[in-house]
Design a protein around this nucleic acid. Structure first.
Length: 585
RNA sequence: GCACCCGUAGCUCAGUGGAUAGAGCGUUGCCCUCCGGAGGCAAAGGCCGUAGGUUCGAAUCCUACCGGGUGCGCCA
């Protein structure tokens, strides 16, 4: 499938080529001035510059050759050399015709099964998941869905933090207090027992971490414990295994509630055995060296404008750092999966770390230049005061609490609006859950990825305007309409376009570009923008004309076909955002 | 000190070198003899942080400065 803009660009490009100009100047865009035209091409001005000609003259020649084509109903020059274009309804209808059967709604495959590994987890075991994990999960899962739809074989890796000093602190605390039984007596098959250990760790860990920070002796002990754990010494290793197993249960519960999927449940510890050989190899090649007692890879380059500290592989005390495990993870990923891309959806603040990691990985030839390494960083989630989001008490809000609060708000709003009143309790709960997750995800995803954003629970759960629930509402309304029409939908109906239909038909043709922008930039907000415009444009269409009661059968069929396309695009775009649509609400 | 991100309507945010910079919320006014009003239509609201520069053309690219956030070897 070729998108409408591509087709138009080709036509206009040929007109440029016929004048001996580069066909790339023929790029057609949706018009900035819908009052003047549907589409525009700005290439005449650039072409004129390159050929040292008068822009309006160049545009004139293009316009003349395009006017002869019956695709266009209007071709005109405006201002310094804009070419304004309107296309015929017949052409637009013909463009949409094959989509009656296209489950991809005209979106091409941008990849042919190349493997892409996505890193968007990173919660530490033994710690309760909190709102700080939300953005990586939501954005990363959406990027995974987008890339999968685009034709990649994707592997989302939770890549949990299970091998660092925090483990030394926690295990040390159990041992020092003689309370290792709490861990060893946990029955992994018993939900209550698992829950008990989770709660114990959730309280114990912050306490132990605080104590270790305040007391250098405790901190040193924690670091010694970490080295012993990393040597797989007992009882450290057994305690750790149980802690990890229980933690994974908790993580899965949180990610399931969010509808966030991972293919790989790996952690830093899983690559431990790659580390020693990797470091030996790097030492042998002279890439790693000793510095202040630590083993490091210098990654500074002569033309660096900023300071670039080396990446530390082994600390003075012999323990590894997250750069080490990240690097070993790259060794494993290259060996097991041969990816063409590895993308980290991780807090923007870690960008120096990734710069170091990528440089070290290239230098060590662990990742060849042809394999893309990207840190798709995201901004901080702030509260309404502009500072990092906290609870009223000033603490960090647990992820499950955030979800529960939002579900309660959804439920309250539904009751107020008399929505789903006659549903049974199970379906009502399901709808409230979907509404809440849609609200949270859309509020997050609609922001440009790298920018900080203000998370306002009250605002996003008002469910009006540019919100997830508004999108669900529109989608459900279309589904309801199509259900009523049922058998009478003719998917082969040709489109008959008139004032109320045309804006929707034009917008529906922009879908491939929206997906492409989101894909190329690892930026789901392009799809949010599209989804919202689609919902709004549909709503306007819906308000402006009758569909089911339309007596002209051809017009009725045409409008139902537009509804069906809108419905499919909403299904696709919301699924790419990780938002589930209820059948009714 | 150095580096990175951000600065756009009262608030929260979009904006791929192009024309008259858009949306949501809030404000004001309309629209339920009609398929779901969590809706639609319309109005008001802008020195795009400041000053230079490149360009036929700059919110967008470059430079300097101002303001906010973040990071800068043995945490992750």
């Amino acid at each position: 499938m070729t998108s409408l803009l591509q087709k138009l660009s080709e036509h206009v490009g040929q007109a440029f080529a016929a004048q001996g100009l580069d066909s790339a100047f023929g790029r057609v865009m949706v018009s900035d001035r819908p009052d003047l035209a549907q589409f525009q091409c700005n290439g005449a001005m650039n072409a004129a510059k390159a050929a040292k000609k008068n822009p309006r003259e160049v545009a004139g020649a293009i316009v003349e050759s395009l006017s002869a084509q019956d695709i266009f109903t209007q071709v005109s020059i405006a201002g310094p050399g804009f070419i304004n274009l309107n296309i015929s309804d017949a052409y637009l209808a013909a463009h949409h015709a094959p989509q009656g059967h296209d489950p991809r709604e005209g979106v091409p495959l941008f990849a042919q099964g190349e493997t892409a590994i996505l890193d968007y987890g990173g919660p530490n075991i033994a710690k309760a998941m909190h709102v700080g994990h939300l953005r990586a999960a939501i954005i990363g899962d959406s990027v995974r869905r987008i890339m999968t739809f685009a034709g990649y074989k994707t592997l989302g890796d939770v890549h949990m933090g299970d091998w660092g000093t925090h483990m030394g602190m926690l295990i040390g605390d159990y041992m020092r207090r003689g309370e290792t039984d709490i861990v060893t007596q946990t029955n992994i098959n018993d939900a209550e027992s698992v829950q008990a250990l989770m709660e114990d760790m959730a309280i114990r860990y912050p306490k132990a971490a605080g104590e270790a920070k305040a007391d250098p002796a405790l901190m040193q002990e924690a670091q010694e414990n970490t080295v012993k754990l990393q040597d797989k010494a007992e009882p450290y290793y057994s305690l750790w295994q149980m802690i990890r197993r229980v933690s994974v249960v908790g993580m899965k519960r949180n990610y399931d509630a969010l509808g966030v999927h991972f293919d790989l449940w790996k952690g830093e510890a899983d690559v431990h055995d790659y580390i020693a050989p990797m470091v030996e190899d790097l030492k042998g090649k002279g890439i790693a060296e000793l510095s202040d007692g630590a083993v490091v890879v210098p990654v500074a380059m002569p033309d660096d404008k900023k300071e670039m500290p080396p990446m530390i592989l082994y600390k003075r005390d012999g323990a590894v750092m997250y750069g080490t495990t990240d690097m070993a993870t790259l060794v494993e990923r290259m060996k097991l999966y041969q990816p063409s891309k590895i993308v980290y959806i991780v807090d923007q603040r870690q960008n120096l770390h990734f710069e170091q990691l990528f440089r070290a990985a290239r230098k060590a030839q662990i990742v060849p230049g042809a394999v893309e390494l990207t840190h798709a960083g995201f901004g901080t989630m702030n509260g309404t005061d502009g500072k990092p989001f906290k609870t009223r008490e000033g603490g960090v809000m647990r992820l499950e609490d955030l979800i529960d609060i939002t579900i309660e708000k959804a439920r309250a709003r539904m009751a107020e609006a008399h929505v789903a009143e006659d549903f049974d309790a199970t379906e009502r709960d399901d709808v409230a859950h979907k509404v809440a997750i849609a609200a949270i995800k859309f509020a997050d995803l609609q922001n440009a990825r790298q920018a900080d954003y203000v998370f306002d629970l009250d605002r996003l759960s008002r469910f009006e305007g540019k919100t997830g629930p508004y999108l669900l509402y529109q989608a459900v309304r279309i589904k309801s309409l199509l259900r009523r029409a049922e058998k009478s939908i003719d998917f082969n109906a040709s489109l008959i376009l008139d004032e109320p239909d045309r804006p929707l038909a034009l917008l529906l043709a922009e879908f491939p570009e929206a997906v492409e922008a989101a894909l190329k930039n690892y930026a789901p907000h392009y799809l949010c923008e599209y989804a919202f415009r689609l919902a709004q444009t549909f709503s306007s269409f819906y308000g402006n004309c009758h569909i089911l009661s339309e007596t002209n059968i051809d017009i009725r069929n045409s409008r139902l076909a537009l509804c069906a396309m809108t419905c499919r695009q909403m299904d696709i775009v919301l699924s790419l955002l990780g938002i589930d649509i209820p059948e009714r609400m």
